[in-house]
Design a protein around this nucleic acid. Structure first.
Lengths: 343, 343
DNA sequence: TTGTACGCGTTATCAA
DNA sequence: TTGATAACGCGTACAA
């Protein structure tokens, strides 16, 4: 592997000059610069990142910490790759690389983070599977590592965050079901810890109350993730004494289980139970068509990347970018799974 | 961030001794070692990777190059995260970290690789979306970068590879359909470039011939990836003059499109067309149940990681591991989508 | 058993 | 405009 020294020797000039030429410094003769660039091209020179990192104190890498065995809707595989793609598309403009790292289960995730951070592997981090109280946030803030969370948290250290607009979705979903005659509307939630649970519950309670409906916590149903969770949810609902006529879900795999669970009982989505919630492109595979809320994941990725840039001042171009803390908008895809209340 | 120098000063001993203590060298007094480890713990010392990499020439990172906009069955989102998880579980034993990097579309992927490799970001790489003739393989082999491919290639530089057992699947699928009375069996393939296309086609031709059936290239159908491809495939087949009674697919999303396409035409999988192929856990969401072949992705990931270790001699423990070049086994999940030929 | 000193590849400072 | 040199953090050969 050719180093800058080789390059300098090859050209018969000093290392310093070569470095300046390669880094577009002003004080280098155009002819020299050209010679250097040409030779670099020919010899396939690429600067060694370790040397560079050591000298500059930055690695050019942004780490996305993916928690493998996390619960919650983000568990989904479908979700991330599009987001990553969007992120990288922005990072490329800044010479940054996205580096996805697999963190172990949440108990060990703090130790993991300590390693990553201590070793200075990344200039900035993105956390996902944000928890309501999230020690990772304090950890990174204390160490002054720039970071962004995908998901909000009660642990607020002024960090940028992006999140799905759960409030908007819940409000829209409840309204929509209400307008179609539904009065007993169930809400499916992931198990505690994750912050989105609380966001959704609050939004649900608020909207139910606003519409003058009674809040009934038996209609708030904890559900395991995945299709099995969906099946269980279908059975649970159908076996309730005063069962709801509609359910709002947040795990994009749930509807598949719901459909199957209902089918097992000889029932049909939209006729026997209105179903509505957050899903992905995959939902288009369901029949009857699933009414659902979708996000533009590539855009979300781009937005996350911009939020990361905020924390890396040396990359700011003209003006300082704003602190991003926002919920990304959803799109409603109308289907037949939340038809008018029958009878 | 505390450096080794800080640590040494804090303890009133030399940097060299601290380093030796931390790296478990023999020639350091037990008492000193203990003092050092304790102080390191207290001050939260973690060695800076840039300094280490520069000195040792290795980064402790293994890069998985993910091609965002690749065609072929591997495009799938569902596929990778489990594989990554399996890989990391092995790497952890060796103090390695998996780093997933998003490569741009295949045209630019060589330049991208050049960057990664030149910057010495990773000690070893894993390539996916392997192409039949793949210049990336020559590139890495020429530079003596250890690497593993997920998927085989005609470009053979002696590298380890892992692949799905497409041959086994095709042979089993053709046999199975044949035993159920099917004689006109279609095969859906991804568009050229990717190597798996050729592997599947060869296996198909061989098995068809072995059973004494005529090979008919009109039964080999190029299909776009994703659910849309599946819908198109359903229509294509049903509009053929002498249409096949069965189809084997390789894109795990295809069956969703096939089911929908058939439904559009008032037809049912398993009754009007036998459907059988490679899928994932997601397939359990289809009704009627999809007969399909599945892989244990976590194990595949572990195996890939072991193949990577092969190329990193400094990590070999007792004995040198073997060169891994193998197809991973599949599991058949029996369903109702490939029922007996009717009539 | 410990300390000193060098060098990995790079960039930045300063002098020429 | 260029060259020499220091420094980033670390591991190790060699000297003590």
């Amino acid at each position: 592997m050719t180093s800058i020294k080789d390059l300098a020797q090859h050209l018969g000039i000093s290392i310093g000059t070569v470095s300046r030429a390669l880094n577009d410094k002003l004080d280098v003769k155009p002819a020299t610069r050209e010679r250097v660039l040409k030779a670099a091209q020919e010899l396939g020179y690429v600067p060694n990142q370790a040397g560079r990192s050591l000298r500059q104190g930055s690695t050019g890498l942004v780490g996305f910490v993916l928690e493998t065995s996390s619960e919650g809707m983000m568990q989904g595989d479908l979700f991330f790759i599009r987001v990553f793609d969007g992120m990288q598309s922005v990072f490329s403009e800044y010479g940054l690389h996205l580096m996805v790292m697999m963190s172990p289960s949440s108990e060990k995730s703090d130790a993991y983070l300590e390693k990553i951070v201590g070793r200075r592997l990344a200039d900035a981090l993105v956390l996902s599977s944000t928890r309501r109280v999230d020690p990772r946030i304090d950890f990174l803030a204390d160490r002054k590592i720039p970071f962004v969370t995908l998901g909000r948290s009660q642990t607020d250290r002024g960090q940028p965050w992006l999140d799905l607009d759960f409030e908007g979705i819940i409000a829209d979903a409840v309204d929509r079901l209400h307008a179609r005659g539904h009065r007993r509307i169930a809400l499916s939630l992931p198990r505690p810890a994750l912050n989105l649970r609380y966001v959704m519950l609050d939004a649900y309670r608020e909207q139910i109350t606003r519409l003058g409906l009674p809040f009934n916590d038996r209609l708030v149903i904890e559900t395991d993730p995945g299709d099995n969770g969906g099946v269980a949810l279908a059975h649970h609902i159908m076996e309730m004494d005063d069962r709801p006529s509609a359910v709002i879900f947040s795990d994009h795999i749930h509807p598949f289980g719901l459909y199957r669970g209902l089918a097992d009982m000889g029932m049909t989505p939209g006729r026997d139970l209105a179903i509505l919630g957050i899903a992905t492109r995959l939902a288009s595979l369901l029949s009857p068509n699933l009414t659902h809320y979708r996000f533009h994941l590539h855009d979300l990725g781009r937005r996350i990347a911009q939020a990361v840039i905020y924390g890396l001042p040396h990359l700011h171009k003209e003006k300082k970018p704003p602190l991003i803390r926002e919920r990304v908008p959803f799109t409603l895809i109308e289907g037949d799974s939340d038809a008018e209340m029958k009878g």
